[in-house]
Simulated scan of single mutants.
Amino acid sequence: MQDYRLYCLRADGRIKDRHDYQASDDDAALAQAVICPDGFGAEIWQGPRRLASLTGNRQRA
């Protein structure tokens, strides 16, 4: 298992919240990513590597 972090972002792109979790690989980490409640977007990281940027359903200011 590998460690991943999901950062929920505010409308201005700054970090609002962080969720730590484990997954067997990158595909599993993407599948396990939670939806951030405010809908502005998120980033998934594994160590210093950004795995993905997820776009929310609201536009950033």
Rank of each mutant, 00 (worst) to 15 (best):
S24R: 12
R60H: 10
L51S: 04
G39F: 06
S24H: 14
I35K: 13
R60G: 07
Q2M: 13
L9H: 00
A28H: 13
Y4W: 03
S24V: 15
A11C: 12
Q59V: 14
Y4Q: 01
L9A: 00
A31P: 08
L6I: 01
Q46E: 02
R5L: 11
P37S: 02
T55G: 09
Q2D: 13
S53F: 10
L51D: 03
R50K: 14
W45C: 04
Y21H: 15
A23Y: 09
T55H: 14
I15V: 09
A23D: 01
R5K: 15
A23Q: 04
A33L: 01
M1N: 07
I44C: 01
Q22A: 08
K16E: 15
P48H: 05
A61N: 07
P48I: 04
D3M: 11
P37T: 02
R14V: 04
V34Y: 05
G41Q: 08
Q32D: 12
R50P: 06
W45S: 00
Q22T: 11
S24E: 15
D26V: 08
N57C: 11
R14N: 13
G41Y: 03
A29D: 03
Q46Y: 06
W45D: 00
G39W: 04
W45G: 00
C8Y: 02
M1V: 12
G56D: 06
R18A: 11
A31G: 09
A31C: 10
R5A: 13
P48Y: 12
T55K: 13
W45F: 11
Y4D: 07
H19V: 14
G13V: 03
F40C: 07
L9K: 03
T55A: 13
D25S: 02
D26M: 11
Q22N: 07
C36D: 13
D38Q: 12
D20E: 15
R58A: 13
D20S: 15
I35N: 12
H19R: 14
D20Y: 15
C8S: 01
Q46V: 03
L51Q: 05
G56F: 02
I15A: 04
D20A: 13
D17F: 09
L9Y: 03
A61I: 04
L54W: 05
D20H: 15
L30T: 08
Q46L: 00
I35T: 15
I35M: 08
R14H: 10
D25P: 04
G56H: 08
I44A: 00
A52K: 00
G13R: 02
Q59D: 10
T55N: 08
A42Y: 05
T55F: 06
V34I: 15
D26E: 14
H19D: 15
L51G: 01
R58N: 02
E43A: 08
L30K: 10
G39S: 04
L9G: 08
D20L: 11
L6V: 05
D17Q: 15
R10N: 05
G47D: 06
S24M: 08
G39E: 03
Q46C: 09
Q32P: 03
R58T: 01
D38S: 00
G41I: 00
D26I: 11
R58D: 05
E43M: 04
Q32F: 05
D25V: 10
F40D: 00
T55D: 13
D3A: 14
Q59W: 02
H19Q: 06
Y4E: 02
D27G: 10
R49N: 13
A31H: 08
R49F: 07
R60E: 06
D38C: 00
Q59K: 08
R14D: 11
L54E: 05
R5S: 09
